[in-house]
Design a protein around this nucleic acid. Sequence first.
DNA 1: ATATTTTTTTAGTCTAGTCTAAAACAATTT
DNA 2: AAATTGTTTTAGACTAGACTAAAAAAATAT
Lengths: 215, 215
Amino acid sequence: MTFSEENYLKTIYHLMAVSDADISTNAIAEKMETKASSVTDMLKKLAEKELVNYIKYQGVSLTEKGQLAAKMIVRKHRLWETFLVEKLDFSWDEVHDLAEQLEHIKSEKLINKLDDFLGNPTEDPHGDAIPDASGRIIKIEKQLLSEMEKNRVGICVGVKDTSSDFLKYLDKQEIALGSQIEIIEKESFDSSFRIRVETKEITISHKIASNLYIK
Amino acid sequence: MTFSEENYLKTIYHLMAVSDADISTNAIAEKMETKASSVTDMLKKLAEKELVNYIKYQGVSLTEKGQLAAKMIVRKHRLWETFLVEKLDFSWDEVHDLAEQLEHIKSEKLINKLDDFLGNPTEDPHGDAIPDASGRIIKIEKQLLSEMEKNRVGICVGVKDTSSDFLKYLDKQEIALGSQIEIIEKESFDSSFRIRVETKEITISHKIASNLYIK
DNA sequence: ATATTTTTTTAGTCTAGTCTAAAACAATTT
DNA sequence: AAATTGTTTTAGACTAGACTAAAAAAATAT
């Protein structure tokens, strides 16, 4: 499997996690910042290899085989991210691009040994689930902060957006995985939130609230 | 810099360490298991980028810039090998192919953090020197066992051949880096050696002796 | 129901890196 | 010195993966 094939599978996998319906050529092209015609070419190739179900003009979905392959790439990505943060002391906003490279290293043995070395973590530094060697995922029930009621209290367990900008903002506000968060007030005018992070009270926009997972 | 360019640079670097003279197109082709015509194409490209000095029909050598780039690839290769053996518990015969992949990961910061994590080692698991962040190499004076006199005693500090077959043979004979080795007898008929490894006496062929570095 | 717009696919082009076959050059032998 | 052999380069073809432009299909608007 080439780097490019792996990147397409991963993208389709992530899009399927959001949408249920078949994934459109354009959706893939947009997410990968490539052209629809390139996507069509690759979909044919992946269909040939029985990694996706593809019908002209009707979008794609992953086959069982494709799903497993995608999960293994996600597994690698998230284990490498964990390694970078836990062992090499990178901050959580730096690791994505590096993991994009490392996820393509081909060796089951390596990734399983890395998994053991890290103590078989079930979540990466952004709170996303790490599939195990057979593709199983332990998913925790979590909620977007934006969907929670006033006065509810919870723990920050993940982020939806993992862009460097967003993560740096969270660092600045001292919001981290594990932080206790209480909703003090919801401002109906602009949908902003007044929250308490541990002992500190701050105001966050709706956009921020809709990218924080709480449990 | 592409993977392919990096592989050519590394190959030229290794060939230069042995030969002094300019490196021939065929020598590169043979080492890389590719065709001479492909090598010519790439040499033109590398010359264009001022990474090699290349004159038609007269072979190549690395420029300063090329040398530094090559050293950085070797640095990455050897640090990753060290990581795999020291931290992930791979054996020394398994790590080469994995390091061939990992050496192409692009990030200075990553490799420097990995270096620190490993305690800034100066040698990899095969006894080869690891260039530091600026390309400096601490070279230890070492000798091939095959070039040593009878009755000399030394410590095994490296291997010349790093093939899996050879390394597995050494494991079987319980020869490792750090093993004390004494030359008991040199057999002039077949150039084989009778040696003592720590407390155990064994006979090794000339081929084996000429792939073991002793200090 | 037809026209328009959007999406998707096809057809053809480009680049990097490889290859084969042939030509050019260098080294060796006679 | 000429002929042979070996090495290196050139010329042209191929593949993967991207692209543009045009055609085809689907979705939407009139």
